[in-house]
Write a protein that binds this DNA or RNA. Structure first.
Length: 730
DNA sequence: TGAGACGCTGTTTTT
DNA sequence: CAGCGTCTCA
C-alpha cells in the first residue's frame, strides 16, 4: 500500500522512463509547471494551452517523486473532470494514482465535514440541500413568519435564495449585499434578515446543509479548530486547483488553510474565462494568489494546441474588446483552418433546422457525433433544437438546465429515503406528510411541532393522535419506513419498497401526466441500483445531479459514446470538440437582457469567449435576425453585439447572407455612433433616466465609457455607456 | 382546513 | 410552459 519514499530503480524504473518520455512531450513552460517543487505555483493558462495536460503530468510526477497518492488533493469544477485527470495520470504511471483524492470543493467539503462537522454541532449524517430544497425551507419560513402575504411585492423565494447565497459567497453581510446589489429590496431588509436567521437556525436544528454551508463550514472548521487543520494539511501535502479563476474568496481561504505549513499549492486558471461571478468569483482574485502565498512562482502558458489559427483569430478578436484583461494574444500551432461560419435565420425553428442540416452533413462525412457540441447561454435556448434532433433521430445528451432531481415526483421519492438517513430532516417530513390525502400545510405544521424535540421522530409519529381521516394512511407510511430501515436493506430495496407505497399517491397527484414522469422514476431506480449505501447515493445525487433528459430518439443511450452534446456554456467549461455550434447569438439572449452593469456585460463577453474556444476545427455561430418573442421592450436587434463587433473578414458566410455584413456594420455603427453624442452629455451631476432603474444622478465617470449613477430606487450602479440605454433628463 | 381550478408571473448561469 | 399563489367550494 504505502509507497516507499525513495523507490528503488528496480520497482519503478519502467514507470520513471515512460514518465520521463511523457514529460519531454511537454513544452518548456508546461514542464516547468509540472515539475516545479518547493514553492506555490500560479499557472496562468490561456484556453487550449494544455493546462489539463500539465495538471495530469504534475500529479504523475509527484507520485513518481515518491509522494504518496493519498497525500495529493485535486480540486476541479466537476467530479468527472477530476476522475478523468486522475485516470490519465494513472496511465502515465500506474494505478496507484487512483488513490489521489479528487473532486469539487463541495464534494471534498462533504467528505471532510462528515468527519469533522461535530466540531460545529453537526452530526455525521447531515443531509445536503439542493437549490429547490433551500427554496422550500425559505418558503416554509416565509409562511410561518407570515411574510409575503401582508407586504406588497415581497421578493420570491428564488430571489431571496440568490441574495442569501450571494452574500455568503462574497463573504459580505446581508445588509451590504442588499445595499449594493439589491437596492430595490431595501425596504424589506428587516424581514430578510429575519428570514436569514430562521433559515440558518432551521438548517442547524435539522441536520441540513446547503451548498454554501459546505464551503462556509469547511472554512470555519479549518480556521477555528487547529487539530482539524493540522490533520487536513498533514493528509494533503500537495494541493492542485483547476479553474482557479472561478473560485471565490471563501474557496481561496480553504486552500490557504488546508495548505498551512507546507504551501505546496498549484493553481491553474485563465482570467479571460472567468464566468462565475454570480457565485462570488472575480477574475481579479487570481492575481491575489501571490499575496496569499508569498514566494509564488508564476508560469504562463501561451501556446494554443487546440484550435486552428482561423478560430483563434476570432477568439482573440472577441477578447480584444474586453475592457480589462491580463492576458495576451494566443497563437496556434495549427496554421490555417476554416474561418468560423456565421449564419442568421428568421426564427428558432429555422435555426434548429440549419444546425441539424450541418450536423447531418458532418455525420455523412464520417464525423462521430461525440466530436460535435451545441452550446448556448441559457438552458431553455435548446428546446426547439431538441425537438428537431428528436425528429431526425439524432441522439443527444443535454448538460445544464433542469436537473432530474429537481422535479417534484423525484423529490417525493427521495424524501422517503432521506428521513431514513436523517430522521431530523423536517423538510423531507414536511413533503412526505403533505402527500397524505386530507393533510395540508396547517396539519403538517402541527404534527411537526409536536415531534419537534422527539428523540425518535418515527416513534413520535406513531404516538401522534391522527384523526380517522388519515390515521390509516399514516400507519401505512410508518410501516413502510420501518420496514426499509431494517438492517440489510440495500438502497435499491429501499427504493422499491418506497415506490410500492408511493405509486398510488403518485398516480393520484400527477393524474394528468404520470406516465411521462414514471420514466424518470425508472431512471432513478437504475441510479440507486449502483450504490451499496444510502448516504453516498444521496450525496452524489445532490452534489453531482444527473441531467433531466438522458435518453432520447434512438432509445437507449450508449454510455458516453455516440451522442451529440447540447450544453450550456457554463457546463461546457474545460471541454473541447472538433465542431462546435454556438446558437442564439442574438441580442436579448446572448448577452441576456439583464446586464446593465459593465462587469456583467464583460462577463457575458467572456462567456462567448469560453464558448468559441471550445472548438478545435470548426466553429459555427448562429443568431436570429429579429427577436420574435415576448421581450419587446429589449432593444430588439437581431444579431448579438458580440458578433457585430467582430471584423467580418474573420468569418465566412456572413457576406453572402443578406443582412449579416450590413447588420454587422450597422450594429457596430449604431453602438459606436451613439457614444460621441453620449459621452459629452453624461457629465457629473446630470440627471438621467434608465429604462429599468428609473431616474438617477451621475456621480462620476468611471473610465472612459462608463459612469457611476446613483438611482433613487436602486442605489449606485456602474453603467457602460455603449450599451446602457441611458437618457439625459432635461 | 384541504382540494381543485384558474390566472399570473417570470426565466441566466452551478455546486 | 411551468409552477406558484389566490380563490372558491366542500
Amino acid at each position: 500500500m504505502q509507497r516507499s519514499l525513495f523507490p528503488s530503480a528496480d520497482s519503478d524504473g519502467r514507470a520513471i522512463s515512460s514518465l520521463g518520455t511523457a514529460l519531454e512531450g511537454l513544452n518548456d513552460a508546461q514542464r516547468e509547471a509540472a515539475t516545479c517543487l518547493g514553492s506555490p505555483v500560479l499557472v496562468i493558462a490561456g484556453a487550449g494551452t494544455g493546462k489539463t495536460r500539465t495538471l495530469v503530468h504534475r500529479m504523475a510526477y509527484l507520485v513518481d517523486q515518491g509522494i504518496s497518492a493519498e497525500n495529493i488533493l485535486l480540486l476541479t469544477f466537476t467530479r468527472k473532470a477530476a476522475q478523468e485527470m486522475i485516470d490519465r495520470a494513472g496511465r502515465l504511471i500506474d494505478h496507484s494514482a487512483q488513490r489521489i483524492t479528487g473532486g469539487t470543493f463541495h464534494a471534498v467539503a462533504n467528505i471532510l465535514l462528515r468527519r469533522f462537522g461535530h466540531h460545529l454541532g453537526y452530526a455525521s449524517n447531515f443531509t445536503i440541500l439542493d437549490r429547490s430544497d433551500s427554496e422550500g425551507i425559505l418558503n416554509l419560513i416565509k409562511s410561518s413568519l407570515n411574510l409575503g402575504s401582508s407586504g406588497k411585492r415581497f421578493p420570491t423565494r428564488r430571489v431571496i435564495c440568490n441574495l442569501l447565497s450571494r452574500a455568503v459567497n462574497k463573504s459580505r453581510s446581508l445588509e451590504e449585499t442588499v445595499e449594493d446589489q439589491y437596492a430595490h429590496l431595501a425596504e424589506f431588509l428587516d424581514d430578510l434578515v429575519k428570514i436569514q436567521k430562521h433559515y440558518h437556525q432551521f438548517k442547524l436544528e435539522h441536520g441540513l446543509m446547503d451548498y454554501d454551508d459546505l464551503l462556509v463550514n469547511l472554512q470555519k472548521v479549518l480556521s477555528q479548530v487547529g487539530e482539524v487543520r493540522r490533520e487536513v494539511s498533514g493528509r494533503f501535502r500537495h494541493i492542485l486547483v483547476d479553474e482557479y479563476q472561478d473560485t471565490n474568496p471563501l474557496q481561496a481561504d480553504i486552500v490557504r488553510l488546508a495548505a498551512e505549513g507546507h504551501n505546496n499549492v498549484m493553481v491553474v486558471g485563465d482570467d479571460s474565462q472567468s464566468i462565475y461571478s454570480f457565485r462570488g468569483a472575480d477574475f481579479r482574485n487570481i492575481m491575489d494568489f501571490p499575496q496569499i502565498f508569498p514566494g509564488t512562482t508564476l508560469i504562463r502558458l501561451e501556446e494554443n494546441y487546440r484550435s486552428t489559427q482561423a478560430i483563434l483569430s476570432l477568439t482573440n478578436a472577441i477578447i480584444d474588446h474586453a475592457t480589462e484583461k491580463y492576458n495576451k494574444k494566443l497563437f496556434s500551432s495549427i496554421a490555417g483552418g476554416d474561418k468560423p461560419i456565421v449564419n442568421g435565420t428568421w426564427d428558432d425553428s429555422a435555426q434548429a433546422r440549419w444546425v441539424c442540416d450541418r450536423i447531418s452533413g458532418l455525420v455523412d462525412a464520417g464525423v462521430p457525433l461525440s466530436e460535435m457540441a451545441v452550446l448556448f447561454r441559457s438552458g431553455f435556448h435548446s428546446y426547439k433544437l431538441e425537438l428537431e434532433l428528436t425528429n431526425r433521430q439524432i441522439i443527444f445528451e443535454k448538460r445544464g438546465g433542469m436537473k432530474l432531481t429537481e422535479s417534484a415526483h423525484i423529490k417525493d421519492i427521495l424524501s422517503y429515503l432521506r428521513v431514513i438517513n436523517n430522521p431530523a430532516d423536517h423538510l423531507s417530513w414536511n413533503r412526505i406528510l403533505l402527500l397524505l390525502d386530507k393533510v395540508g400545510p396547517k396539519t403538517v405544521q402541527r404534527v411537526l411541532e409536536t415531534i419537534r424535540s422527539a428523540e425518535d421522530p418515527l416513534a413520535a409519529l406513531h404516538e401522534y393522535p391522527a384523526p380517522p381521516a388519515w390515521r390509516a394512511q399514516l400507519k401505512a407510511l410508518l410501516t413502510m419506513l420501518k420496514d426499509i430501515s431494517a438492517p440489510g436493506f440495500t438502497p435499491v430495496m429501499m427504493y422499491d419498497a418506497a415506490m410500492d407505497y408511493y405509486r398510488e399517491i403518485f398516480e393520484r397527484i400527477y393524474h394528468d401526466d404520470y406516465p411521462t414522469r414514471s420514466r424518470d422514476l425508472e431512471q432513478l431506480r437504475q441510479l440507486v441500483a449502483g450504490y451499496p449505501d444510502l448516504q453516498s447515493f444521496m450525496d452524489d445525487t445532490t452534489l453531482d445531479p444527473p441531467g433531466a433528459t438522458d435518453e432520447t430518439a434512438g432509445g437507449r443511450l450508449g454510455g458516453d459514446g455516440e451522442s451529440l452534446v447540447l450544453s450550456t456554456i457554463h457546463s461546457a467549461k474545460g471541454l473541447e470538440w472538433d465542431h462546435v455550434f454556438v446558437i442564439h447569438l442574438a441580442a436579448g439572449r446572448f448577452p441576456t437582457c439583464q446586464p446593465f452593469m459593465r462587469d456583467e456585460w464583460e462577463e457575458e463577453r467572456r462567456m462567448f469567449y469560453v464558448a468559441a474556444t471550445r472548438a478545435r476545427k470548426n466553429l459555427y455561430l448562429t443568431y436570429l435576425r429579429e427577436s420574435n418573442s415576448f421581450d419587446r421592450q429589449a432593444a430588439s436587434g437581431g444579431i448579438s453585439p458580440f458578433l457585430a463587433e467582430i471584423p467580418s473578414h474573420l468569418v465566412q458566410g456572413g457576406e453572402s447572407m443578406t443582412g449579416w455584413s450590413g447588420a454587422a456594420v450597422s450594429a457596430a455603427v449604431v453602438t459606436r455612433s451613439r457614444q460621441p453624442r453620449d459621452i459629452s452629455m453624461f457629465q457629473e451631476g446630470v440627471a438621467v433616466r434608465h429604462p429599468f432603474f428609473g431616474e438617477g444622478r451621475i456621480e462620476k465617470s468611471a473610465g472612459t465609457r462608463s459612469v457611476e449613477v446613483f438611482f433613487s430606487r436602486h442605489g449606485r450602479k456602474t453603467l457602460h455607456l455603449d450599451y446602457a440605454r441611458l437618457e439625459v433628463i432635461e
